[in-house]
């Protein structure tokens, strides 16, 4: 379970960042007063265009960033006060595989297993399970740099799931992947849901959201524009397509 309550995040901009963003403001408001809840056994999607604040929100949930205001609880634990405890319970996966190129799949899983404080035997049995599930046996001892994108994605998934997390956070997990490779992620999300895990993923592709999620929040310029179940979204929509409705909501807010 993830509970995000009135969370805001501002970053102080340095001179270089001000120049890059072409602004004279001292602070950038990445997320403004955001609230939502993700339930176990359900898939929650954070939908929004690029730069909407999706990644910042997910980074706050995964304890990389601290909220400027508000609070986030994951499995009943506070992300600021109990960050290390929370980290044991979450798995974090991004579109960029986030793997060490010069290590082998085996070495990476051993390393992360140890970082998650698993015992050697626990690591071995988890690895065996994941290798079988993801069909990874043939390349477990090859260096990541020599693997194909699909293989890397599998290693990345195994790395995320090595400690069997209760909560899985995906930050645009399919961005830059072809349909075949994306399929691995989609399968993973579905299986996490079946296992009763809490799943949150961010995306800017409506069709992907439609395919997987039970609940959804639309975010733009750091603000939540819609939050509710997918069924609710469908019943309230004014456009004929889901993507059309997503664009309408974003544009309507921007115009106001």
């Amino acid at each position: 379970m993830i509970e995000v309550k009135n969370v805001s995040k501002t970053f102080k901009l340095n001179k270089k960042q001000k120049k890059e963003l072409d602004t004279t403001e001292d602070f950038s408001h990445a997320v403004k007063d955001v609230s939502f809840t993700c339930q176990p056994g359900r898939v929650f999607s954070l939908l929004g265009p690029n730069g909407a604040g999706k990644t910042t929100t997910l980074r706050m949930i995964s304890t990389i960033f601290k909220p400027t205001q508000g609070s986030i609880s994951v499995c009943g634990l506070d992300t600021v006060k109990e960050e290390l405890e929370i980290r044991k319970k979450i798995g974090f996966l991004t579109g960029s595989t986030g793997l060490y190129q010069r290590l082998t799949a085996n070495e990476i899983l051993n390393y992360f297993g140890k970082l998650y404080k698993l015992s050697d035997s626990e690591i071995e049995s988890r690895k065996k399970e994941l290798y079988a599930l993801l069909d990874m046996d043939s390349f477990q001892n090859k260096r990541i740099g020599k693997l194909s994108t699909g293989m890397k994605q599998k290693v990345s998934i195994a790395r995320t799931m090595i400690h069997d997390p209760e909560v899985v956070i995906f930050d645009e997990p399919t961005s830059g992947l072809d349909v075949i490779t994306s399929e691995n992620i989609i399968k993973l999300i579905k299986s996490c849901k079946e296992q009763g895990k809490t799943v949150i993923f961010s995306s800017h592709i409506m069709s992907e959201v439609d395919l997987l999620c039970d609940d959804m929040a639309i975010i733009d310029q750091g603000e939540i524009l819609f939050s509710g179940s997918m069924d609710q979204f469908r019943s309230e929509m004014k456009e004929s397509t889901l993507t059309g409705e997503f664009i309408r909501i974003v544009n309507e807010k921007r115009a106001s």
Partner: peptide, 12 residues
């Protein structure tokens, strides 16, 4: 290489 986020979400 984009590994920073994953390493910062481990319990260390």
């Amino acid at each position: 290489r984009g590994t920073i986020e994953t390493i910062l979400t481990v319990p260390v």
